[in-house]
Design a protein around this nucleic acid. Sequence first.
DNA 1: CTATGTATACTTGTATACTAGCATTCAAAT
DNA 2: ATTTGAATGCTAGTATACAAGTATACATAG
Lengths: 236, 236
Amino acid sequence: MEMETFDNLSGVSFRPQESLSIGAQLHRILRAAIIRGDLVPGQAISEIEISKKFSVSRQPVREAFIKLGEERLIEVLPQRGTYVRKISVKEVLDARHLREIIEVSIVREVAEKHDAELIRTLRELVAAQKQVPQGDNQSFLLLDEEFHRTLALSAGREYAWRVTEGIKAQMNRVRFLTFGSATPMQQLADEHAGVIDAIEAGDADLAGKRMEQHMRTLITTLPLMAERYPEHFVAE
Amino acid sequence: MEMETFDNLSGVSFRPQESLSIGAQLHRILRAAIIRGDLVPGQAISEIEISKKFSVSRQPVREAFIKLGEERLIEVLPQRGTYVRKISVKEVLDARHLREIIEVSIVREVAEKHDAELIRTLRELVAAQKQVPQGDNQSFLLLDEEFHRTLALSAGREYAWRVTEGIKAQMNRVRFLTFGSATPMQQLADEHAGVIDAIEAGDADLAGKRMEQHMRTLITTLPLMAERYPEHFVAE
DNA sequence: CTATGTATACTTGTATACTAGCATTCAAAT
DNA sequence: ATTTGAATGCTAGTATACAAGTATACATAG
């Protein structure tokens, strides 16, 4: 039988590694749990405990712990124990600061490109954000993430986006604390829209200013949260 | 016997964890080996191979591999093998770009503080840099790292510095390729001095400009290296 | 009552054995 | 000659067992 050759496989996207390893899955699950606050700051989590809870061995748990440690979401103390890191106000502010200069730099870059297709994509995202029902913070967070990711990648700044993902993790821990109160989704979506307007107008300065303001909005509740939930934060 | 109490232990700095775990040591060793180019890009390195070479089990090697994978220095392909990542010109440029905005932001911040003590420390570092004998790239690299670290930490930007460490790893891979040729230590040290001058003068704009230029100097050899050692770089 | 030693039950670190997926070789079938 | 498929030897992923450091409780000596 002859080998049939296909030249037209353009539409087919083959995704290897679709089923992640147990360790990788655990990492994803625990990461989300910490950010959401299901695992509370300061809480002890041993490898054995987690391995029993998920009916796996300690090794994949160790793998997840190593990664979480690198992301500074947990702290592994050899022969002592592993703890969910408490939130550090100083570290969050430091991380936010870095994110600000990254995102401002990106948006300024994008503002000078005049990419109509991109503008359309961004506007769709903001429209979707405005339709998220009050209280569905999870959905809004995903759309928010998509917005900033689209901006970063359209500027070809993949490295910057990877860094931003880590920063967002720290910032979102605070945001989830705030979710008891109402999230100002409308305000955030409006700020997004304002940034898009400035980009479309090709006004890099304005776009930068608005992104700067947006980055500040994201942690307005930080001091309040630190005061309301002191046990979630490191004493400093 | 009575318990004697000490109130004056200020000078004593007790360092727990002075002896790192095998996994942590392997991570450090392999990281340096990859950056120096002792492990060449594209080379296959299996867990067993490394574990035998260092007479340890696979587990600590796995721990090191996980961390190296996170740093994008190796690529782990499940059930296939682990390879030293080839250098990506695009990624290095992207990383450098991020480093530029970080370091410029830091130096601008520092320029407005007028910290005489800091200025003195920085000048000492540059003086030491100028005394490094031609060819001793390792020593110069350490002093260079110290210079930028001092700047970042004096601005209280620890998060930014952690990110910069990762970026430097990528950039230094190129720099070590260049070490066959001569490293322009004098030029780099002079640029450092120029930055300090601007900081001392409190001229944030100038300090930023000079740091920007410095960041560009650091990768001038990139296109040449990519052409001379194509097998070390990913095709793109 | 206080200080100290000790047993014990934790913790993470490391070693070893086993599982399962992938690539290559090579023989067999067409 | 070409294709297929099984065998083999590699790889990383996972499970289990053991080693070693730490914290706690508690008995014991002073």
